[in-house]
Simulated assay, not measured.
Amino acid sequence: MTTPETASSAPATPLTRLFSNTELVIVILLGIVSVATAWVSFQAALYDGQTAKALSQSQSATAEAESLYLEGNQEYVQDAQTLARLTELQAQIDFGDAATSALAAETYDALFFVAVSEHFGAAIERAAAANAADPEFYTSPLDDEEYQNVLFGAYGEKSEEAVALTAQADELDARGDWLTLTTVLMAISLFLLGVAAVVRSRRVQYALIGIGAAIFIFAGGLMLTVPVTWV
């Protein structure tokens, strides 16, 4: 028959002894939270570096895209001026007298040879064919899709690259922000556990341990939502 004295003297399990030693539990939790905080801080620093790199690449791509656009636009303006002059010369060829027409034809050929690029010349030919097929509707070679693609295609590709890099930088920055928030929460958990280590009231200790552990678990959940990076 088991007496109260026998029951009270029954050996405690290792788990019971562990949790009966509140200070030891706090030390273990402090160690775990400290290591986790250091790891999250390391990951946040890596993401900050990746964000800065992506932003730098985005800015470089944006500057290059603007340069390509200005280059294409400059050629477009020059071609527009050339087209206006060619149109004027063509009118002189069609409606001028013999001498004027001959001089205009020579000037037209010389200007076309010097100032008209291969892709613009092809656009002029396609526009002329379209105008001949439908005289009631004027087709400008400046609106030719292939011609504009030659001038501004590289700009469009580089601009899309810049947008993609900016989006990547925003995503990396958001991940870094989440990790920073996680670091703050873990720091709060460390503070609560540190206070729990010095207070004398068991009830207060248990409350602080519980709150600190809950905050740490929540912060750990946030940490797990962010992919680990090593770059």
Rank of each mutant, 00 (worst) to 15 (best):
W39D: 05
S140R: 11
A164W: 01
A174P: 05
F191P: 07
W178H: 07
S34W: 06
Q148F: 02
E136G: 15
I28P: 00
Y47S: 11
D134A: 12
Q43K: 05
Y108V: 04
E118C: 02
T16Q: 13
A65M: 03
T82R: 03
Q90A: 14
V150G: 02
E157L: 01
Y155T: 00
S60C: 03
S189Q: 10
F95W: 09
A99L: 10
P141N: 11
S189C: 10
G210F: 01
L86E: 08
R85H: 05
D79L: 06
N21R: 03
T62H: 07
I28E: 01
V114Q: 04
A132I: 06
L165Q: 12
F113W: 02
Q57Y: 06
G221R: 05
Q43A: 09
A127N: 09
L103F: 04
D170E: 13
K158H: 00
P227C: 11
P141H: 09
T13Y: 04
A130T: 14
A91N: 02
A196T: 13
A10V: 05
A52T: 15
L30D: 05
P135R: 12
T13E: 13
E23C: 04
D143A: 14
W230C: 04
L15H: 02
V33Q: 05
A10Q: 10
I93F: 03
M223Q: 14
L181T: 06
E136P: 03
A196W: 04
A65Y: 00
R202G: 12
D109Q: 11
T100D: 01
Y76P: 00
P4D: 08
A61S: 12
L68I: 00
L208T: 14
H119A: 08
A36L: 10
T100L: 03
V25D: 00
Y206N: 15
L103E: 12
F95D: 01
M1A: 10
L222Q: 10
L18F: 13
Y155H: 09
E106I: 01
A167W: 00
D134Q: 15
M223D: 13
